[in-house]
Design a protein around this nucleic acid. Structure first.
Lengths: 356, 356
DNA sequence: TTCGGCGGGTAACGCGCGTTACTAAGTAAG
DNA sequence: CTTACTTAGTAACGCGCGTTACCCGCCGAA
């Protein structure tokens, strides 16, 4: 095939890398000694002199340990598997970042495999099972299972063979530990912020009321209002599609329904995309943000929130933190901590920008 | 530590998984036979009967091959390494998706390691080298190196130990093959679209003129105009920060500089964030999109382009395709194809929405 | 002198699997 | 009846490393 003379060393002869044995010979010691030094065992007695001889040999030969062989011999791979639809539908990528960073700190590797939960009945049916299977073949020590949006999920059977933690979703069968955003506290903090800014008549642009996010955030809003001695006016809550268009329409409804002096002075949009649409509705009516109407969002989709004009004050979904926490939890489990099915709630911090 | 009685099988006794030997015993044959069957070797002669006996045993015992051991014995890992800052700054996540999908098809695994090119002088100095080192310890057969935005990069020395392909960036030292978007063709197609819609006076909101994306896209715009017998009026090209604010200001300049009848009727924004700002400037002046001013963007940042109102017509950066192509190219290299330093250009398709 | 302990190592087994001999029985050709 | 060739398999080595059991020489104590 390769007729050109351009060298491709790596492929031409898959050159035997330098092994521990080579190092041992070079240093004039046994391979065992090398092993002891490299994994600096406490109770091994190697003189300082040979120790440096060995280290020198490692340097000289450019020795690089073979992780696979080590895994085989030591019966531990230092790998976690992350199976997620985020690979196919990147919305919550920061989960990967958080998990990756934490894993890196813990000297572990993340094997990322694609899932496709979203249309598990579609053509990709089985992809997920296959992914888990592949990960188990790699002898991962634990599994992380992450979703793009907060919801209940059914996981493949085989995840139970190994410690598993769910991220941004929870086990519909109630057996596995999970890590999810504290939607309720987030909703509370959002509305409290509006109250604090002097608003008392607050419109809510709601998501599909059946999803956990909507339930939690709305509940939080209610709590915040209650804390100020107010109640949530059901008339001020309008649901819409979770898009800019949906937000636009919902905002139009709310804004046009009342005479000027009864109009809400603030909108709590349950996600940033809807806030984006609400912006248009508000501007279209010649109103200013936050002067006439304050807007607060949810999700902190950077691309929207940070680039809207004025920049959108919003509640952030703690993807990165959830990812990190997932790895930490998994580390505890693989270390032998008993597996329970509890949910860890992670705070959704308020991000102050300029729309309130 | 674990005082609770909740079981944690996986950690309690790291139970020896069932091995090929177990399967062999169960089927009453030698391990070799099992190996032959499982890797269904052509030239091995195993009777149909024992073949099914073995397969049955595999099923019965729930045997799962140990990928690590296989890699060790066969001297091939089936792993590619992907080192990228995308993990830390997710903008071009779709590269990962494309690569992942293709790898999956090729029965290979992607080991994703973080880089931090962006601030390679910062606290993460060395992260990248460490990442490559770790990947090599895992005996990856090839490396993918991806950047979040199109530019020249310097790669760690050790990548040369193994076939390597750059994605969305190119080797500043001119040694490695790379895969980059065809910015020029993209710029051309964008402006051609505007010309086709009848616009001849086109304003350009430019990026920092030094980056490859700006150079290419502008060049393409120039070509398109030349194709229509027009020239690019330098006065109509305004550079700004690559943000919504930058786009807003640049658009203001262009729109306010001319009397109504000399005003450009279309804006080519070199990225979607700037287009987002341009939208505001246009709407603020009581103008409509695309009625009074047509707008076309670049990048296809879904979160912006698909949610702006009207939805933004834009040129897509082919992240996913580049990722896939990266894996394919790597596959060819690891198969022995000679390594050359050429760049593969990938088309940037026009995405028609509603702003033209 | 003998015994035990200690510092400084090493031989050798096994991790789970791919692979290359090699064997043993059956069959066909000479 | 040999010889040769196929069919159906197996024994055994090695991949690179962790780990356990053991060994050897030396020194101080009994």
């Amino acid at each position: 095939m390769a007729k050109s003379t351009t060298p491709n060393k790596a492929a031409a002869v898959r050159q035997r890398g330098v092994t521990m044995n080579d190092v041992a010979k070079h240093a004039g010691v046994s391979r065992t000694a090398v092993s002891f030094v490299l994994s600096n065992r406490e109770n091994a007695s190697i003189s300082e002199e040979t120790r440096t001889r060995i280290n020198d040999a490692v340097q000289a030969l450019g020795y690089r340990p073979n992780a696979g062989a080590r895994a085989l011999a030591s019966q531990r791979s230092d790998w976690y598997g992350l199976v997620t639809e985020i690979v196919t539908a990147p919305f919550a990528v920061d989960i990967i970042k958080g998990a990756q960073d934490q894993a890196w700190l813990d000297h572990r590797f993340l094997l990322i495999a694609p899932s496709d939960q979203a249309d598990a009945v579609g053509p990709n049916q089985g992809l997920e099972d296959a992914a888990v299977e592949k990960l188990l073949e790699q002898r991962v020590e634990g599994l992380l299972y992450a979703a793009t949006f907060h919801r209940g999920v059914h996981v493949p059977e085989s995840v139970h063979e190994v410690p598993t933690v769910l991220i941004n979703c929870f086990d519909a069968d109630g057996k596995l530990p999970s890590i999810v955003p504290d939607e309720r506290a987030g909703g509370r903090v959002a509305v409290e912020r509006l109250l604090q800014a002097g608003h008392s008549r607050i419109g809510v642009i709601n998501l599909d009321p059946r999803i956990p996010a909507a339930v939690g955030r709305l509940e939080g809003a209610r709590e915040a209002l209650a804390g100020a001695g107010l109640e949530l006016d059901p008339e001020l809550v309008v649901s819409g599609y979770a898009t800019a268009d949906g937000g636009y329409e919902a905002a139009c409804q709310i804004l046009d329904r009342y005479p000027k002096d009864q109009r809400p002075t603030a909108l709590f949009c349950l996600n940033d995309r809807m806030a984006m649409g609400a912006y248009d509705a508000i501007k279209e009516r010649g109103l200013t943000i936050p002067g006439d109407i304050a807007v607060i969002g949810f999700d902190n989709q950077e691309l929207i929130a940070a680039y809207l004009r004025p920049k959108l004050t919003t509640v952030a979904l703690p993807f990165e933190k959830m990812g990190a926490l997932g790895v930490q939890t998994l580390a505890a489990l693989t270390a032998g901590q008993p597996i329970t099915a509890d949910q860890q709630l992670v705070d959704c911090p308020l991000l102050e920008r300029s729309s309130v």
